[in-house]
């Protein structure tokens, strides 16, 4: 790689915005990998659509992080010139697409959280974050509806789709706990009313998820051990490969404008 990583001043608010931006970028990127390869044209459209929503959310959040940080960074520097250890997204969103069930369960777990999260964030004392939340909430509500309908179809469809959906739930479950965790950096923002406490959303998230999973005749795993590390840059092996692809052009051609 010919181009060096940027330096980021991770004040609590910058870090906060980067974490949410990274969630949206990485999940949007994963969805964009389906483009041209989905099980039906309608799903090609839907997955691209959700990918575009998330990419839009990422751009707004990166833009805000750049503004708050007040250095020379911008959305593209954040996306293209940070390495794995500087990325702050949830482990859940970087997990590979796998089959359609894996992608939709990942989407379902995240959207069920994002829908609640952004709705609550509309009350943020930070007007920019409240505005981003208002837009993201509408999008997340659709993502949740779309993925919920598929979980039910797959779970209650054929024996094969049931097995695949259950495999996906079992595989991804341990990445869901990280969504509700809070560290010291974010605690201060919660206390001052800029961020909301995600832990407070956990019971409602579990209720939504349990409801759909039951309707789909599927089951949540009994094992509740949760993986963590994404928020502080300790990722799974998958993110590095994603980034080497995503970042290849700006890393190869120093200083070029595209």
């Amino acid at each position: 790689m010919a181009v060096a990583n940027i330096e980021v001043s991770e004040t609590p608010l910058v870090l906060y915005a980067l974490r949410r931006a990274d969630d949206a970028l990485i999940l949007g990127h994963r969805l964009s990998e389906w483009c041209g390869h989905a099980p039906a044209l309608e799903e090609d459209m839907a997955l691209a659509n959700m990918g575009l929503d998330l990419l839009g959310q990422a751009r707004e959040l990166y833009g805000y992080a750049a503004k708050v940080e007040g250095r020379d960074n911008d959305e593209d520097k954040f996306a293209y010139l940070r390495d794995v250890r500087q990325y702050r997204n949830l482990l859940l969103v970087e997990q590979p697409n796998g089959d359609f069930a894996r992608t939709l369960v990942r989407q379902f777990f995240y959207a069920a959280f994002a829908d609640l999260y952004w709705r609550a964030m509309m009350a943020s004392k930070d007007p920019t974050l409240a505005a981003i939340a208002a837009k993201s909430e509408k999008e997340s509500a659709y993502h949740l509806r779309h993925s919920s309908e598929w979980i039910v179809r797959l779970g209650d469809g054929t024996a094969e789709s049931h097995r695949r959906a259950q495999d996906a739930i079992d595989h991804l479950w341990s990445y869901t706990g990280e969504m509700f965790a809070v560290d010291d950096s974010e605690r201060g923002l919660i206390v001052s009313g800029i961020a909301i406490d995600p832990a407070s959303l956990q019971p409602r998230w579990l209720k939504t998820v349990t409801g759909i999973v039951n309707e789909a005749t599927l089951q949540l795993p009994a094992n509740n051990w949760m993986q963590k590390g994404g928020r502080s840059g300790s990722h799974s092996e998958h993110l590095g490969h994603l980034l080497s692809e995503l970042q290849s052009l700006p890393r190869t051609f120093p200083g070029a404008t595209w």
């Binding site: 990998e33 691209a48 575009l52 990419l55 751009r59 593209d76 692809e245 290849s248 595209w258």
Partner: peptide
């Protein structure tokens, strides 16, 4: 799409 060189280009190409 996965290698578009900026976020603006990526969104435009995906769209």
């Amino acid at each position: 799409i996965t290698r578009a060189p900026s976020l603006r280009r990526k969104a435009a190409l995906l769209a």
